[in-house]
Write a protein that binds this DNA or RNA. Sequence first.
DNA 1: CTCAACGTTGAGTGGTTTGTCAACTCAACG
DNA 2: CGTTGAGTTGACAAACCACTCAACGTTGAG
Lengths: 123, 123
Amino acid sequence: MSTAFGNALRERRRASGISQRRLAEMAGVDFSYISKLENGRLPAPAAETILRIALSIKSPPEELLAAAQKLPDDIGSALSANPAAVRFVQEASALKLTEPEWEQMRGTLKSLRESNQGRTRRS
Amino acid sequence: MSTAFGNALRERRRASGISQRRLAEMAGVDFSYISKLENGRLPAPAAETILRIALSIKSPPEELLAAAQKLPDDIGSALSANPAAVRFVQEASALKLTEPEWEQMRGTLKSLRESNQGRTRRS
DNA sequence: CTCAACGTTGAGTGGTTTGTCAACTCAACG
DNA sequence: CGTTGAGTTGACAAACCACTCAACGTTGAG
């Protein structure tokens, strides 16, 4: 009867001190929709809608997206076009990287690009 | 009139020396469906169906999935549950990593885990 | 009281996904 | 010729997704 997304949404909406109706108006959906989402009567909306909702309550979109088990659209298309990237993510999740480890990898990303200067790019 | 997925499918099916009808039967879909896929008359199937097809023609699923611009299901859920991972992929695709660079990152993955022994895991 | 803002609920809707079914064509074999 | 195996096509449809609409209950302020 309750969903991770619904709970997260209700919590963040309340934290922002805004009513369901007002949020609905800002996000461009019906207010009854918000109610049902919060109560887990309906599955989480499309990624795009989640984004509009998150913006309206000034919550970082990633958390709501994660609670909804949805991917930002750009990520989906970027990844699906790229087998090498998919393999990477596959291995990483097999290893069950922790959050700090992912952050560490983000760091590695930049140094990789720097240390490849002149090798892959020649300039 | 032709799609990347359709072409890839036809090629791999022929390589496996199997007819559309037989493949369809093995994969549990109608044979006319296979025909339309190969000719690009219909968009690529659901990831799950692509998987059954790939298994039937003994082709590695990743290639067909990539041609179809679909994500393996496990990846989708692993990623969407994990904001840190999403941030990583976001940055990586902003940098437009090349295929060899992704492979390089895969290497980094293992060394990261080794060099974290005893810090994050204590053992 | 009343009425205004908030929240909840059941029913329905329009579009997309993901296919099926039945009918056809074409080539080769006996 | 007739039949067998292969592929193609048009029409259609069930299931799902992402919502809306209309109606109703509740709570607190004036």
